[in-house]
Computed example of a mutant assay.
Amino acid sequence: MTTRTVSTTPEPDSARFSSVTFTHLARLTDDTGLFEHARHAVARREHGYCTDDAARGLVVISREVGPSAEALRLAERYLTFLTHAQDATGAFHNRLGFDRVWSDEPGLGDWWGRALWGLGTAAARCPAPWIRQEAHHAFVQGASRRSASPRAMAFAALGAAEVLRAEPGAEPAASLLSAAATVIGHPGSDPHWPWPEERLTYANAALAEAVTAAGDLLGDPPVLAAGLRMLTWLLDVQTSDGHLSVLPATGWRRGNPRLRYDQQPIEVAALADACATAAAVTGAPAWHAGVHRCITWFLGDNDIGRPMWDASTGGGYDGLTPTGPNLNQGAESTLALIATFQRRASLRAVSPAG
């Protein structure tokens, strides 16, 4: 059994976040896009780029208040990558080699959903008008499509929610958000498994966030209640002795034993986003406490008591294993770190308990 040793409980004060920048993100980015993988802090060119990461990169930079000129240049590259990946029907390629050749056909998988998440966030939030305009155009083109995958639709719904918050009544976004809530479904009546699927896999909280956002922005109280019920349970089952213990990469099937490792930063970031959305909708302190747990998971308040980021590089570690962090600092983990730390603003209004 792994011994968890944390000398002090990390607190998300401003000093702990002062060194969190886009430095490592810039290190992983060239004039084409964002490299997917790294060996420690060094990009691995042989694995190329993916739409998933460019989309997440566009999300975090668009969220930033007063981004630097360098950050906006990164946003420009990620937006250019996404518009190059999109075909005339609104579908997207996902994987581009270092030779700048796509290795797949355009489709409507998770990458389509994440692309719309990035485009919708940029259209709603980016301070550069030309980026907002181009992102909105590409979002509308992609929002005309529908996927059968609940996660793809959930990611797309997060982009649609951003557009609706900035432009209430925007029909393409409202239609997509409504469709996503339908595809995701509602939780069942079993209090021990209030989830619309028989198995939890990855980025689970994004589904709860999408349903919560749909209920809030479309004025549907039963849907809002369903999303909050899903998220309440998900936060509860991923909390252990007051700290976050997220589901491992292998997931968890109903009725089966739950494993502990390897834990992925993407789960923490998805939960932080969902709790921040629930906090904004309800104002309930429990959701601020959830964001707090997500932040401190990266700072070391986790199952093994080890920080999950490298303060010297600004990179996020790729996974939490029984023996310590996986010290590789790839794009997904670094983006999860940045996205989670960006949520510290939601802690200022309410001091979390527990």
Rank of each mutant, 00 (worst) to 15 (best):
50 C>A: 15
32 T>K: 07
316 G>A: 02
100 R>Q: 15
166 A>M: 02
315 G>Y: 08
119 L>E: 11
262 D>F: 11
297 W>V: 04
270 A>F: 06
103 S>G: 15
207 L>V: 01
337 L>N: 10
293 R>G: 09
114 R>V: 08
28 L>Y: 04
335 L>V: 00
118 G>T: 11
257 P>S: 04
244 L>E: 08
275 C>A: 15
276 A>H: 07
183 V>R: 06
185 G>W: 02
233 W>E: 05
191 P>N: 08
272 A>F: 03
127 P>R: 00
318 D>V: 06
340 T>M: 00
303 D>R: 01
95 R>T: 11
340 T>D: 09
321 T>F: 11
130 W>Q: 14
164 L>G: 09
46 E>T: 14
43 A>L: 11
60 V>W: 02
64 E>C: 13
231 L>G: 04
5 T>Q: 11
62 S>Y: 00
196 P>H: 05
211 V>G: 07
232 T>Q: 14
135 A>Q: 05
289 A>I: 02
70 E>V: 09
47 H>K: 12
84 H>N: 15
210 A>N: 10
343 R>T: 11
18 S>D: 15
328 N>Y: 04
262 D>C: 12
300 G>I: 07
258 R>W: 01
127 P>K: 01
125 R>P: 03
126 C>F: 04
338 I>L: 12
174 A>S: 14
349 A>R: 12
211 V>K: 02
69 A>W: 06
166 A>T: 07
50 C>I: 09
280 A>P: 02
53 D>M: 09
96 L>N: 07
50 C>S: 14
276 A>T: 11
1 M>D: 14
216 D>M: 08
314 G>C: 04
54 A>C: 14
52 D>C: 00
16 R>S: 14
117 W>C: 02
159 G>R: 11
114 R>P: 01
232 T>S: 15
63 R>T: 10
193 W>D: 10
53 D>A: 11
